[in-house]
């Protein structure tokens, strides 16, 4: 695709690994960059709102985006608990942007997934969520065709007016590998941004996620004996059933598929 006149910007955040909780390149943001690079190549702009640590070992998360072959990341410097939406919107209002790519939601903090919607509202742009691919861009009619990811691998085709914001789903193409050399040599171009602190969230309590209890089957039995029967039936029945014979086997499998609603 040659979309040289197109102005595409991808917004990147610092991700967090699900188990080690170490900062890393956010998976969806990386996919957004991959999509952007495929769309406009070197013309892709990248924006991050936050602070860059002076310690190089703390920069690895942001630098890993540079390692995908970006020459620079534009940095809007703001304090840690500032509201990124305002900062980014303020910056983007001064640019002429056709497409803004983001992840669906951040990997840390509130992780509400609101940022693209709020930006769309403030910038008056169209918004499409969870895209897997940008199929085509019609610059004459200022329209694009995108594929939206639905559960279990399904896709919906959408037409959307330019300019627009798209959040990129995990179903999008895998991001290219981040290479160490370019990551170390890439540049940050920083501008100081006026910041408004997010007051509301300061009162919230944050703890590590508790494992949610597995919901028990609701037993609508009126007597103790029925409840007992229902509670014990699951343990003894079903699990580890062994079937012999072709006919019986096929039937048992079919029954399961029907029960699960797959056939």
């Amino acid at each position: 695709m040659s979309n040289n006149n197109l102005s595409v910007i991808s917004l990147v955040s610092i991700g967090e690994h699900p188990t080690s909780r170490r900062p890393r390149r956010a998976e969806q943001d990386a996919r957004a960059i991959e999509l952007g690079i495929k769309l406009v190549g070197d013309n892709l702009q990248t924006l991050h709102a936050g602070k860059l640590s002076d310690d190089p070992s703390q920069q690895t998360a942001l630098r890993s985006y540079l390692g995908m072959g970006l020459s620079e990341i534009h940095l809007l410097e703001m304090s840690e608990n500032a509201d990124a939406v305002l900062v980014i919107a303020e910056y983007l209002k001064q640019q002429k942007i056709d497409i803004i790519l983001t992840g669906v939601r951040a990997e840390n903090g509130e992780s509400s997934g609101m940022l693209p919607y709020l930006l769309a509202e403030q910038l008056g742009m169209a918004m499409v969520t969870s895209i897997a691919e940008i199929l085509s861009i019609d610059e004459v009619n200022q329209q694009a065709e995108v594929l939206q990811a639905l559960p279990r691998g399904q896709r919906r085709k959408l037409k959307i007016d330019l300019p627009f914001i798209a959040s990129v789903d995990m179903a999008a193409a895998m991001p290219r590998q981040s290479a160490f050399g370019p990551a170390m040599r890439g540049q940050f171009e920083a501008t100081q941004a006026a910041t408004v602190t997010d007051q509301e969230s300061s009162g919230w309590q944050v703890a590590d996620a508790k494992k949610r209890p597995k919901r028990l089957k609701i037993i609508k039995a009126k007597t103790a004996a029925d409840r007992f029967k229902a509670a014990t039936a699951k343990a003894s029945g079903g699990g580890g059933k062994v079937v012999h014979g072709v006919e019986e086997s096929a039937q048992a499998i079919l029954d399961l598929l029907v029960e699960e609603g797959l056939v």
Binding site: E16, A106, E107, N108, G109, E110, S111, V206, D208, A209
Partner: peptide, 8 residues
């Protein structure tokens, strides 16, 4: 929050 890693 945090993409499923924390409770707020």
């Amino acid at each position: 929050g945090s993409a499923g890693k924390s409770d707020i």
